[in-house]
């Protein structure tokens, strides 16, 4: 069943990198560096603006993938992969969409485990890629049984 999801894509969703969200996010990971939170500091920097920490895109919206049904419990976050062309700037618009890149299964000690690879793309207003964010979610045998898949 999860294999049928490969290739499913959400529609692009507009986000703005909000100053207050970036400040809270940076503080919550113990990284309250002025390049993230001090407006004047950002203006004087090479970017002319503040930037967002590399793991910030988790906060962004990328639209829901129609037809994708995932359990809310029992999922394990296995891997997370970021690729950046440049840092994200506070105040800029970013258009995000998600795609199911792959699904595969492996035999583990607790039965067959499923691996769902989901990738999120973040583009600027001209359609130029800024970042990708890939998550690999592990779906355990117990969860798959409860879903009847």
């Amino acid at each position: 069943m999860f294999r049928e999801y490969i290739g499913l894509t959400s529609s692009k969703t507009r986000n703005v990198i909000e100053r207050e969200l970036v400040r809270r996010f940076a503080e919550s990971i113990g990284d309250a560096h002025p390049i993230y939170i001090d407006e004047e500091f950002g203006r004087q920097s090479r970017f002319g603006a503040n930037i967002a920490p590399p793991t910030f895109p988790r906060v962004l919206r990328s639209g829901s993938i129609e037809g994708l049904k995932l359990p809310l419990k029992g999922l394990i976050h296995g891997e997370q992969i970021y690729h950046y062309k440049r840092p994200l700037l506070v105040g800029e618009e970013v258009f995000c969409y998600s795609k199911i890149e792959d699904y595969y299964e492996k035999e583990g000690s607790t039965g067959k485990m499923g691996f769902l690879k989901m990738k999120r793309y973040g583009e600027d207003s001209h359609g130029q890629l800024i970042f990708t964010e890939e998550s690999i979610t592990i779906i355990t045998e117990t969860v798959r049984r409860s879903l009847n898949v």
Binding site: I29, H33, P53, P54, E79, I81, Y82
Partner: peptide, 21 residues
């Protein structure tokens, strides 16, 4: 998120282009 902050002080020199965990 915490781990990446080892690199924050060097923002004027470059940026994290790939981060795999």
């Amino acid at each position: 998120g915490n781990l990446a902050k080892l690199f924050t002080p060097y923002y004027e020199e470059g940026f994290i282009s790939d981060y795999n965990i």
